[in-house]
Design a protein around this nucleic acid. Sequence first.
DNA 1: CTGAAAGCGCTTACAG
DNA 2: CTGAAAGCGCTTACAG
Lengths: 336, 336
Amino acid sequence: MTRIDDVARAAGVSTATVSRALRGLPMVSETTRRRVLEAATRLGYSASPSASRLAGGRTGGVAVVVPRITRWFFSTVVEAAEQSLHEAGYDVLLFNLGGSEQARLKLLHTGALRQRADAVMLISMPLLAEDFAAVSQLELPGVTVSSGTAVPGWPSVRIDDVGAARKAMEHLIGLGHTRIARICGESSDELAFTTHVDRRRGYLEALLHAGITPDPALEVEGSLDLAGGAAATGELLARGVAFTAIFATCDEAAMGALTALRRHGLRVPEDVSLAGIDDHDLAPAIGLTTVAQPAAEQGRRAVQTLLSPDAQGDVLLPTHLTVRESTAAPARTLDG
Amino acid sequence: MTRIDDVARAAGVSTATVSRALRGLPMVSETTRRRVLEAATRLGYSASPSASRLAGGRTGGVAVVVPRITRWFFSTVVEAAEQSLHEAGYDVLLFNLGGSEQARLKLLHTGALRQRADAVMLISMPLLAEDFAAVSQLELPGVTVSSGTAVPGWPSVRIDDVGAARKAMEHLIGLGHTRIARICGESSDELAFTTHVDRRRGYLEALLHAGITPDPALEVEGSLDLAGGAAATGELLARGVAFTAIFATCDEAAMGALTALRRHGLRVPEDVSLAGIDDHDLAPAIGLTTVAQPAAEQGRRAVQTLLSPDAQGDVLLPTHLTVRESTAAPARTLDG
DNA sequence: CTGAAAGCGCTTACAG
DNA sequence: CTGAAAGCGCTTACAG
């Protein structure tokens, strides 16, 4: 390992100058900088991150926190964020909560993050009242992605969840559906996490706007994944309530619904229309109608926002309806 | 920020003793250790990672390198590995190559990794001859996951790719198929990356074992994702060659095939049977027959292997055929 | 624009 | 079992 002293000696300057020249600081003459760079290259030198961090007080890392890296939206956001962060010279520390409340608490309520990262990116992170205090005690810059709740002082990047849900619903209503079920998403507002609440609001608003009375029997909560979607759909069918379409809070839940419907011998869209939100990679493969949201773009914008100190406030990205084969006019309208 | 001196003062011992007590080193009396722990807890102390790293020479991080975190297999391996690593007290540094050759080279051929991580986990990482030298110059312990090629001195965790492909093929052949296409996977052996080569070998072996002469016109290369599967299937159809089944190198390619078949008005399995490898989360949703591989288990075992210095050699995990609705006997056997 | 020196907060021989 | 002191390899006021 060549150290900064080796480079300093080779270039005939002090270590302070090497440090400045290599980091591109302004107060170095061009000739000196060239000499230093040449020596550093020749010796294959790169500064020890550990030493830089200790001396400089910056860790050079950004913590990226996701609920489940295995879900489409999160992996897509992380991929984009990772690339942007590495391009900007940061290490990416991955924290995958895996649905564990314990992991969430440990991450937020210990000093672990502060000493490991210069900044934090919270993706779809539900926060309780006491979590806000913990987050602000981190004394770290941060950004939230796809979380309706703003952390004070942190910018946020997201879509309009109410609007996205309305787009899906208006499409279904436009096809003639009136009995539209809604599946998945914990809509309790205990957690300061408005995504699900907002999507539910969009569902209800669209119905009311069309003069359709919402029927609580058509709403089934559930986790936002395949299993949750399948279970919620199973529950819906078990209730024996009439419906001709399902609006799923996300595409993975919609895919779970597809599995459950198939299992019950129901065809999509002949017997039931199905729409989601996301535009998951695999949505085209199953012909799923959905409201597309720009996941990668949210990751990139979050990093941009995080790294430009002037950026503040909310970034709201657009969504758009993508019609595929999973939605059609109802064959027979079953008014319960 | 409370520092080690503060704890030392509070406990009435030296910083050396604090350091030893907190890290659980053996040469500390129980009473002293208790006193130190109590003081540390009371003051909310946790050691500065940067300082520990510089002084101790260990970074406390493990680099996890994947081609594309958005693909099912990789995100699943990473999720499991991340959990195991955090439980063991390591930071997880994520490197997502994103298919960029440049990213791969930069990662392997600069000292970047060595100074940032104590160990490396390479997941499905193709290595060229010159890469091996670079990897061993890292002078870091490591493990490879799902890469047929062993890095000298590094253990590996994987499945039997030849066997997995044979299981899928034997199922199709057992149903009566003889014209079986194979899609996706760069089978050139330029890269020391045997996964695709092995799966192709399984394809060929199964055919030969059943007395079927392989037809090169039935093989189409392509990337291992939706787009690749769709493109390869499009190419296959464009060739106008007769076939009754498709064996896809992975489930995502199979899903791409499904899209392309649907687009061409072909039904699965009535017109074409379709089988993959993986048992992707969404495979049940589309009724895909596949050979399941334990992705999370590979992530966990890789970490285990990495952290136990005695562990060596290859870990070979089992696969099993999972039959769903995408395969059936051919309606009419088209012998080209 | 450049350098000498202190300091970042730990860990680790070394000595006892 | 414990402590004093050196050292890990940088960065940063401070002085010039």
